[in-house]
Simulated scan of single mutants.
Amino acid sequence: MPEFQPDKLTVKFMPPTTPCLPVDGRKYTLTHSDETGALYLAIGTEYDCSALNVKLRDEVMANWDASLGQYLLTVNVYVDGVENEYAQAKARYTIFRKNLNLAITAIINGDKEFYCFFPWLVDCPIYVQFQSSFHEFNQRIFYGTPRYYWLD
Rank of each mutant, 00 (worst) to 15 (best):
A106E: 04
A106Y: 05
A106H: 05
A106L: 05
I107T: 03
I107R: 03
I107K: 04
I108Y: 02
I108G: 00
I108V: 15
I108K: 04
N109H: 09
N109V: 05
N109S: 08
N109T: 08
N109E: 10
N109M: 06
G110S: 08
D111Y: 03
D111S: 10
D111R: 05
K112V: 10
K112P: 02
K112N: 13
K112S: 15
K112R: 15
K112Q: 14
K112W: 08
E113W: 08
F114N: 02
F114C: 06
F114H: 10
F114I: 09
Y115P: 02
Y115G: 08
Y115H: 13
Y115T: 07
C116M: 10
C116Q: 15
C116I: 10
C116S: 14
C116N: 14
C116Y: 07
F117Y: 15
F117D: 13
F117R: 12
F117T: 15
F118R: 12
F118Y: 15
F118Q: 12
F118D: 07
F118N: 13
P119S: 09
W120N: 14
W120F: 12
W120P: 00
W120C: 04
L121Q: 07
L121C: 08
L121Y: 08
L121N: 03
V122G: 00
V122T: 13
V122R: 07
D123K: 14
D123E: 15
D123Y: 13
C124P: 00
C124V: 14
C124Q: 14
C124G: 05
C124A: 15
C124D: 07
C124F: 09
P125G: 02
P125D: 14
P125Y: 07
P125K: 11
P125V: 07
P125F: 07
I126T: 02
I126S: 01
I126A: 00
I126C: 04
Y127P: 01
Y127F: 15
Y127N: 09
Y127G: 01
Y127I: 10
V128W: 00
V128N: 00
V128R: 00
V128F: 00
V128C: 12
Q129G: 02
Q129A: 06
Q129K: 11
Q129D: 13
F130T: 03
F130E: 03
Q131E: 14
S132L: 04
S132A: 11
S132E: 04
S132K: 05
S132N: 12
S132C: 12
S132V: 08
S132W: 02
S133Q: 14
S133F: 04
S133C: 12
S133G: 12
S133E: 11
F134K: 07
F134S: 05
H135F: 06
